[in-house]
Nucleic acid binder design. Structure first.
Lengths: 199, 199
DNA sequence: AAGATATTTGACATCATGTCAAGAACGTGC
DNA sequence: GCACGTTCTTGACATGATGTCAAATATCTT
């Protein structure tokens, strides 16, 4: 067998960076091939298609991001944990110059466009999966907080509410790019969910 | 001067329907030309470019949608008004088979991709503008409710929170397509904002 | 050393946007 | 009434995207 002449993971990293910067449809395989120093045909051979390449690059990102979230949610009072969660979330899609937005939300709205086109459906599931896993993390955090008497509502409903707000923040980031406003909304959300305890 | 052979508004309507169904990047001018019974070149002559055509079609939609919202927010108790607002919002992006999602959110995340590319910036402003106007409507509704003693919080902050949730709902709709869940989140949001008064 | 196997490479088909020049149809002014 | 000018229409063209494929190539295995 002939060995590959490029590093699989490095190409995924480069590809995700491009996808994140310019959107999936706004990134051509020629762009990625040029940046990675690989022939376009080799990308097709190694990954199958543009969307398959995106999916692999995204899954990589999702794992890394989940790990970071888990860490952010893991210490301090419930309020501190939720604050850290929003900080990480907002920081994630405000990173870069200009900010690149939330990869999940952007990918979801961009690829969800065409209806049931095989790979688009796979992508939708990948996005939905990450959102579900993040929701579960937040819910667990709230349940643990409830056990410590820091929260007395419905953990599932509250987690879903918080996740909805983070998705909304991802959208508002694109519309207005106003980071202080995003942070205010986040703080307000925490107050609402925790019933302004300790504020 | 030679008169146009097609109806300007009808083309906008057909174009918006296509854009809404398959996304901006997922719709080709050939598609629109075929559906509208117009030559592709005529579209360029009349509208300038694909994105300019989209912008005009979107502005048309935005005006109609704002009028509908204003009506929904205009009668009943504050809780009823907010409920009607969420109903209209969710109904809007759950309309069609399959549901077409929120045009604003989808357009924003799709076109916001490429950075500062002239027309993309115009589109971003159009989306941001509609969101701002909707926020103002909700804020006015909350302020009026406060004057009637149905609400005692910060109307501006609450309106921003509600809008953020609606943007989040637009994203979750694409991820899960679970309409009952969306309605639960909406109801929960109203409870949080109104402090569970009357629940 | 030779063959099997996977990768690389470039050519090709197809379809997208956008430009342009030439042709066609209508209002206007003489 | 007729020629002119202006706008719309039409088809050809340039460019660049995705995706396929066959031929060439480089390594591992036997």
């Amino acid at each position: 067998m002939r060995p590959r002449e490029f590093d699989h993971d490095e190409v995924l990293r480069i590809a995700f960076d491009q996808f994140w910067r310019n959107g999936v449809r706004g990134t051509s395989l020629s762009d990625i091939a040029r940046d990675a120093g690989v022939q376009r045909g080799s990308l097709y051979n190694a990954f199958g298609s543009k969307e398959a390449l995106f999916l692999q690059a995204y899954e990589r990102y999702a794992e890394d991001y989940l790990a970071a979230l888990q860490k952010a949610l893991g210490a301090g009072s419930l309020r501190k944990r939720l604050t850290a969660f929003f900080d990480l979330t907002i920081g994630n899609f405000r990173a870069g110059t200009p900010p690149r937005g939330c990869p999940t939300t952007r990918g979801l709205m961009e690829l969800g466009a065409a209806e049931g086109e095989g790979l688009d459906e796979d992508a939708r599931q990948a996005f939905a999966n990450l959102i579900s896993r993040i929701t579960a993390l937040v819910q667990d955090t709230l349940a643990a907080g409830a056990a410590r008497g820091e929260f007395d509502g419905n953990a599932a409903a509250a987690a879903l509410h918080i996740i909805t707000v983070t998705r909304g923040l991802a959208v508002l980031e694109r519309a207005f790019g106003n980071e202080p406003q995003l942070r205010k909304i986040a703080a307000h959300t925490i107050d609402l969910v925790l019933g302004r305890k300790g504020s």
